[in-house]
Design a protein around this nucleic acid. Sequence first.
DNA 1: AAAACTAATTGTATAGTACAATTATTATTT
DNA 2: AAATAATAATTGTACTATACAATTAGTTTT
Lengths: 141, 141
Amino acid sequence: MDKHDLEALDLELATFGRRATAVAMDKKLGTLERSAYLLLHHLSVHGPTGVKSLAEQFRLDISTISRQTAALESKLYIHRLPDPTDGRASSFEITESGSAELRKTKELRLARFAKLFEGWTPDESDQFLHLLAKLNRTFVD
Amino acid sequence: MDKHDLEALDLELATFGRRATAVAMDKKLGTLERSAYLLLHHLSVHGPTGVKSLAEQFRLDISTISRQTAALESKLYIHRLPDPTDGRASSFEITESGSAELRKTKELRLARFAKLFEGWTPDESDQFLHLLAKLNRTFVD
DNA sequence: AAAACTAATTGTATAGTACAATTATTATTT
DNA sequence: AAATAATAATTGTACTATACAATTAGTTTT
């Protein structure tokens, strides 16, 4: 990859990150914030998980996840399962109400993305999904 | 694009946005924050620009840009040019010191991205750049 | 029993953003 | 010409998101 392309990629990634931050704060895109959405999705797919493990999965600080789960817990979207073998630890399980919120928000988000990508050919969006997923995995390593 | 792919894309985009936010806060990646980097780059390429116009270009609130330019101004990376025909308005011009910071940060960022994408084929990174740019333009419309 | 370790929370600080209110100036209307 | 409306920018306030450091409570190791 030559320097010119690298520079273009740098700027596009920064631009996208900035837009994503702004869009994530836009309340009209569903009732759940991005962080809540991702956490609920994770719990919904992978079952009960503790703060430490969530932080590792998402590559975020434990304190960040701790606050976000606390917020979800106070809204009753998740509930705490104490670890029977370790009094310090607990994991979180998505509640019925959390699942309902997740579904609702997902509908809104998907509708929005469907619209955003409607001018794309199937090939383009497939490619993009594949490469974006690759990038996200690359970040992790 | 079928529902399954849309959902995957939704999650990958949200994940990427979240990682981008976290990475943007990591001080070790250059002396300039993402916002400063993008603003300086814009001024460097497009010449002196006012707050309102910057806000439109970046699709951010005027108040957001106003604070970010104020921060850059106080660091002497940009300097204010009063509009001779309108006492309310002014534009900002990048300074020598701002250009130097921009160059320095760019070097660090490019080195980082070069490493991040080193396992990618030229074809993959070209494709990705192209599609990401397309998405960013789509956001704007 | 003491010391070291660990899961999680809480204190503090910062980037980033938006909306609402305000200030200063310019343009329009009467 | 004076009053009013519009506009460029700033400032007040509030919130999400994040990290690092300090703390708390419980567990393991020595």
